[in-house]
Structure formats: C-alpha cells, structure tokens
Simulated assay, not measured.
Amino acid sequence: MNILVTGGAGFIGRWVVKQLLDDGHRLWVLDDLSNGRIENISELMGYSNLIEFIQGDIKDEQLIQDLFSSTCFDLCYHLAASINVQDSIDAPHTTFMNDAVGTFNVLEQCKQHRVKIVFMSTCMIYDQASSTSGIKESHPTKPASPYAGSKIAAENMVMSYYYAYGLPTVIVRPFNTYGPFQKTGGEGGVVAIFINNKLKGKPLQIYGDGTQTRDLLYVEDCARFVVQSGYSDSANGRILNAGLGEDISINDLAKLIAKSDVPIEHIEHIHPQSEIAKLSCNYSKAKVLINWEPTIGLKEGIKRTEEWIKSTDLLEEGKRHE
C-alpha cells in the first residue's frame, strides 16, 4: 500500500514507520521536526527506497492538499501532534492548532480522497481508573489539560467524519508508551528520564507524592497495535485502547529502575491540576477486534530501553573523541 504517516519522525512514529516498512509498504513521512528528529528515521531511510520524507506542517493546508493530490494513498496514520501536558498549559493555542486544527486539515483530505485514517489519541483524556478495574474505551473522559481537551476535540471530529461521510476511521488510545528512541530530557517519558538519570548518577526526581500510577506500554507493542488497527476493517468506526493491562506507582517504578544505585527525591509537582491519580488499561476490545495484546513485560522493556540509552551514550562519547 501507499501510506502516509504524519509525525513519523517522532518516538512512536519511528516504530510505526519501521513496522510498515517491514511489512513491505511504500511510505511518505510528514514531520515538521518540532518534536520529531530526522535521526529517528535516518537508518530506516538508509536501507529502504520505499520511504520518502517531507518536512512540513499539518497546519499548512496547501502542503497537505498537494501531498494528497500528488499521491494516491491507501491509508493515513495521523500521529503528528503537540504532546507535552505542561506546554499545553503554558501555551494552549499551539497545542490546539496542532492537535485539533491540524487534524481537521488531514481529515478533510482523507475525506476528499477516500483514505482511511488512524488517529493517534492518548490515555491522558481519561478520568482516573477505579481501584477494581482497568479503563475501557467507554470510561469517562476528563480534559484536565488543554492537551487532553485538544485530543478530545480532534477525536470528535474524526468520529463525525465516520458517521457523516462514511469515512473509515479508527481512534487509538495507547497508554503511557516508553522504549528506545524516546527523548531522555524534560520532553521525554518517565521511564527514559529515570533511566538516563540513573546512568548519569543523578537522583530520580518524582513529582508529588509518587502514588500516581501509570500503565506502561513498550513502544514496539504500541507500534504493532497502531499498525494493526489500520489493517483491520473491523476496527473502522471504533475507539481502541492499548496498554500492558497493569499499572505501577511512580514510586515503585523509581525503585525498580534506581535499585540502590542512585537516590530518589520527591519534588513539587509542575502541573498537579492535570495529574491523573490512577491509569490502568483494559485492552480487551483490541484483543477481540484486531487480535492484539502486549508481548513485552515491564522489566524486559526497561532492560531494552536501558541498553539502548547506554548504546547512544557510547556513540556520543565516541563522536566526541573522533
């Protein structure tokens, strides 16, 4: 198939691109590199002639129109977005324009050219889980940040195109995803930041009391979920969760990563009003509809992520000595 991946140079996007290339498709990757990095896909571009990279912005309507007019796409994976909760609180306009208006631009072209779209949403739209069961797709939503609000707005537009125009659409809500190629600085995820600090002998810093929980999904499992939702007609018009199916407190995660190598500190929360106390995924719908379930447990995923961060540190060290 001819497939467009927006945000394909980002962390999850990189792994979606790899999965699609492994499956033999021809890809067009659109990314403005505001959050993604060309280094994420340079290796993939090096060994495959089935990938074309376009640096551009989903808010650029003319660019999007030209892209869809010049290529007959079979499928669109729409991952491009502003994803940082704190940034959305500080600058909600940027997040809304990227996540809601940008999605509208892509939707319009998918409608005009009859291209199925898989929209990447987030678990951060949910209200907290109950203590007894994981979050299903029917669980109440709570836009506790402009990021969550923008994603809910975009989701509603995506579903409206399914009902109003019969456009094949899928909304995917992966839970907190981690793994190789995730940023290890302030924009990264908690696992990558914790591992990076540990390797550098720095304390692991926890926002608030650390009792908040996360359901942590390894990135290759996430990419397989996203890709399979695009392949499956049974997913059309549906919202699908993906997660490990078990949650862990940030305190326990820090202990698991730090071992006894570095101290653990609690610091003032930067956005307590947007914290979700308990996130735990019920992925039974994805298992039934697209035959997906996770394969990589948390300990194995942390091990793989740590090995990757170590390898990049060694690579950077080698470059500095060349």
Rank of each mutant, 00 (worst) to 15 (best):
N2Y: 08
I3A: 02
V5D: 11
G8W: 06
F11T: 03
I12S: 10
I12Y: 02
G13W: 08
G13V: 07
R14C: 15
L20H: 05
D22V: 01
H25M: 00
V29L: 09
D32S: 07
S34I: 05
S34W: 05
G36D: 07
R37C: 02
I38K: 12
I38P: 01
S42L: 10
M45D: 00
G46H: 04
G46E: 08
Y47S: 02
S48F: 03
S48G: 11
N49C: 02
L50H: 12
I51H: 00
G56H: 06
Q65H: 10
D66G: 13
F68N: 03
C72I: 04
C72A: 13
I83P: 04
N84H: 12
P92E: 04
F96D: 05
D99N: 15
T103C: 12
F104W: 14
N105R: 11
L107Y: 07
Q109V: 01
Q112T: 09
C123L: 08
M124W: 12
D127V: 04
Q128K: 15
A129I: 01
H139A: 09
H139Y: 03
K142M: 13
A144W: 06
S145C: 06
Y147N: 03
A153Y: 13
A154T: 07
M159L: 15
Y162N: 14
Y163N: 12
Y163Q: 13
G166H: 09
L167V: 08
P168S: 10
R173Q: 11
P174R: 09
N176W: 13
G179C: 11
P180W: 14
P180Y: 08
F181E: 05
E187T: 09
G188P: 12
F194V: 11
F194Q: 06
N196C: 08
N197G: 15
L199N: 11
G201K: 07
Q205C: 05
T211G: 01
L216M: 10
Y218W: 09
D221W: 11
S229R: 04
Y231I: 07
S234I: 06
A235K: 10
L240G: 04
L240C: 06
E246G: 01
I248D: 09
I250N: 00
N251W: 06
N251Y: 01
L253I: 04
K255V: 08
A258H: 10
S260L: 00
P263Y: 02
I264M: 05
I264K: 03
E265N: 04
H266T: 08
H266A: 11
E268Q: 14
H269D: 13
H271C: 09
P272S: 07
P272C: 09
P272Y: 02
K278Q: 11
S280I: 14
S280R: 14
C281F: 05
N282Q: 01
S284D: 15
V288G: 02
I290G: 05
I290A: 02
T295W: 00
T295A: 05
K299N: 08
I302Y: 12
I309P: 11
S311V: 02
E316W: 09
